[in-house]
Every structure is written in C-alpha cells, then in structure tokens.
C-alpha cells in the first residue's frame, strides 16, 4: 500500500481585494503519494502558488481540509507552522532566495543551525555530502554573488534537502534558468528523489518538469481540470 503524503478535500481559498472576492482555489480534492515527483501546471493566476503555499503551511485555506503527513496543517499557529516546515518541508524558490552574506556551504548549513540545531560535526558532514550531491564542493566558500544562476539553484536545492525533509516544494524552480541549466536542475532533483525518496511538488510552466513528473495536475481558475501522468 502506498503512503499518502498530502490529502486535500474540498480545499478552497478566497482573497478579498477591496470589495472584490477572488476565488484562488475553488474546492479541490487531490492526493499526493510519498516519494512522488508531482507537478501543478497552469497559467498565471490559476492557483498553483496558492496551493503550494497552503501545502507548505505558509497560508491557510478558507474552507476545506488538507492533511500533510497526516497533520491538519490548516489549524497550526505561526510558531507550530514554522516548526512543521522546518521539520518536514524544504523550499526551492524561483529567485533562489539565498542569504547573500553566507557562503554556499553556510546557506546549506543555515536550516541545520537556525531551524534544527544540529551539532557542528553532524552539520559539517551533512553539508559536505550535499555539496557533493549537487556538485558544488569547489564552490563551497563562494557567496551567492560569486555563483551562476544554475549554481545558486543547486545551492537552493541542497539547502531545501539539508534537514532531510519528507517533501520539497518548488515554486517555478527553473523559471530563471537557461534551458540547459534548467534541464540539469530537473535531473538533479529527480536523481535526489530516486536516491532519497524525497517527495517533490512543483508549480511550473516548464514542459521538461511536466515530462519528468509522474503525477501532473492541470489547474485553471483555481480548479483541477485534469490529473495525469507524463
């Protein structure tokens, strides 16, 4: 039997902009299995990012239910949500979002110090392992402004994986990368999933990700139009 990592029932999110109510999510049901390589695909404003934010405990649904790792994350307060994210979820952002004053190695180490409080020796071993996994051992001491876009995103991938999360949420991870680099990043994430069993959930327009995803949800106007596999 396959484990269900994310289970959503009638998940809805409404925003109020002035007097106008926007239905970002219109009551959607879906399930994501553990270890899946899943993509939410759709045009801008289709609700992909809102959905990822709710799965990532950054936002709360207006109605409906969402269980992540069997936890109803819609009921978590700020502090508990932060702890849940730190424990279970890694994030990869479109703009890499590395901390500019820290080196590549220190950026990867950051969640292990500030979120997890790992001991120094264990941290060093983990960082070294991840730098090797993303092929950046030679750039370990470089600051983000000394790295290329692809290298930055590889550091971001390593940072997302640092604390050994059960899933990684990636919001348009290849949007700011050239085609070749984007391809390498996707392959890297897929190989990490294959090696460590980490679940990857993407919001994307990138056909290459869609092609590599095992589970694809097509979204439009806050609704799931179609579920399929590549």
């Amino acid at each position: 039997m396959t484990d269900i990592l994310v289970n959503s029932e009638k998940l809805a999110k409404q925003y109020k902009i002035g007097e106008v109510v926007v239905n970002a999510l219109g009551g959607i049901d879906f399930k994501i299995e553990t270890g899946a390589f899943t993509a939410f695909v759709g045009p801008s404003g289709s609700g992909k990012s809102t959905l990822l934010n709710i799965i990532g405990c950054l936002d709360k649904p207006t109605t409906g239910k969402i269980l992540v790792l069997e936890t109803d994350v819609s009921g978590l307060n700020r502090r508990k949500a932060a702890a849940f994210r730190g424990e279970n979820i890694g994030f990869i952002f479109q703009d890499f979002n590395l901390i500019p004053v820290l080196s590549a190695a220190e950026n990867i180490e950051y969640p292990l110090i500030m979120v997890q409080k790992w001991p120094a020796g264990r941290r060093r071993r983990r960082v070294s392992e991840l730098l090797e996994a993303v092929d950046l051992s030679a750039q370990a001491d470089n600051r983000p402004d000394q790295l290329s876009g692809g290298q930055k995103q590889r550091v971001a991938v390593a940072r997302a994986l640092a604390a050994g999360p059960r899933m990684v949420l990636a919001d348009e991870p290849t949007a700011n990368l050239d085609s070749e680099t984007a391809g390498r990043i996707i392959s890297l994430m897929r190989s990490i999933r294959d090696s460590f069993g980490t679940t990857f959930i993407f919001s994307t327009h990138d056909k290459r990700i869609v092609d590599k995803a095992e589970q694809v949800f097509f979204m439009e106007d806050g609704l799931l139009r179609q579920e399929g596999a590549a």
Partner: peptide, 16 residues
Amino acid sequence: IREIGTIAAIGTPPAR
C-alpha cells in the same frame, strides 16, 4: 523583506 520571507518559509522560528 524577501530574505525575511525566505528564512521564515524554511522554518526559522519567529523568536529567532
């Protein structure tokens, strides 16, 4: 602000 958003998103407790 974006940096704060990032560290908050990856689970840094508000107190920290």
